[in-house]
Design a protein around this nucleic acid. Structure first.
Lengths: 215, 215
DNA sequence: CGATCAAGTTGGCACTGTCAACATAAGACG
DNA sequence: CGTCTTATGTTGACAGTGCCAACTTGATCG
């Protein structure tokens, strides 16, 4: 933030790198106060430009938020690559689950944004691309657990569980076990164990191929 | 809606039943256009009163939306009672899952509202009550599947999966299998089968009691 | 140098949630 | 019956929003 938030670094009329400064400021705002609290005017204020300057770089508020979300998907994708070190498949998935939830907690508002229907992926192809990449990684991991299953179905199931738990936590729908377990590792562990047991033991049924990410 | 939406049914200055008319209109708006599209002024307009009349019945926009959400929880609770007829535990949970997703799809915006963090359950105790009631029903059902498991953990896991899938569908994160399977029965079936297999086969581990619904 | 054009600015519009002040109708009480 | 109170609606205002249009600035290139 300290690099470009102060615009007058060279007394310039033109900011120099307003686009990235806007995304950075917006990300910060989203992270601390949630997507709803982000207004273009506030972001502009933070960066130190006039209320209409952002429109030279983003045609709409949604577009700016989409850029923030895309940034989030890249981070998530990275996070899941980092979790790829563990070898035991079960421990592997547990590691992924922990990482996923930790990511959602650490980036709160950004995570909410990434899966918000306010940001239609159909309107932002680049967003869709990074999102599919992240999902692909997850699917790879799940596939190793039980190759007999329809990979798409299985992956969406895992994703659904993680996404659901993340949402429940972020939306404050769970009693504040937060005191002694702020990352909800207990819940995540139990849920993952149940899911893994299911993935391994379920008899492979018919699967008609669900795919993610349209918008 | 036709009962009280037209205020001048008797040329009255006082509406007679403005509160329920507002909730009804808001519910309609939320259902068709999503929570974000609901403005107090628009609701007032629909009902045919001045833009400030709602403030005589709801101290804030959030309060009106909370009333809509509470109404939704009651419907969901009802829905889950209706699903209690099936006897085979597995088929039972499948029935519940189908019902849950169907509810989310049928009531779209209301469902999003029910679990939105915009509406803090701590601010609306009556909301919290009906929400906990609905969760209690789910927990009862899950408990029958494997009494050895921590009931809270297991129920939150089931809930998490259903909630996650619902969110993915409602937020348009899944490719439009919608054409040939608008209710996503294929996905819901597969996911539920995996989950049931897990619930039945997992060895009961330690559980430190997660509970839902705080805000 | 002069023209062009991207990048920022000022001003305005319609809309929002919410507050304050006022108006009206209905019901309580004499 | 008349008056007083109170719940309920209304009008008007304020600060905030996203976005459009018109203007200004400064860098870049012939």
């Amino acid at each position: 933030m300290s690099t470009s938030e102060e615009k007058k670094f060279s007394g310039a009329y033109h900011h120099g790198d307003l686009r990235v400064a806007l995304v950075a400021a917006a990300t910060e705002l989203v992270t601390c106060c949630g997507p709803a609290a982000v207004s273009l005017r506030e972001v502009a204020r933070l960066v130190g430009v006039s209320h209409n300057a952002p429109y030279r770089h983003f045609p709409t508020r949604q577009a700016l938020l989409a850029a923030v979300a895309a940034c989030g998907f890249e981070m998530l994708s990275q996070e899941m690559r980092d979790a790829a070190l563990v070898v035991d498949p079960e421990a592997h998935l547990l590691e992924i689950a922990r990482g996923y939830i930790a990511f959602a907690l650490r980036h709160r508002g950004v995570y909410q944004l990434m899966f918000s229907d306010e940001i239609r992926k159909s309107d932002h192809p680049e967003l869709r691309a990074v999102a599919e990449q992240a999902f692909g990684r997850l699917q790879q991991h799940v596939e190793m657990l039980n190759p007999a299953l329809d990979p798409g179905m299985a992956a969406v199931t895992v994703w659904g569980l993680l996404h659901g738990i993340a949402h429940l936590i972020l939306d404050n729908q769970l009693k504040p076990d937060s005191e002694n377990d702020p990352l909800h590792t207990g819940l995540v562990g139990a849920a993952t164990r149940i899911l893994v047991a299911g993935l391994v033991n379920v008899q492979a049924g018919v699967g008609n191929g669900v795919q993610p990410n349209c918008g």
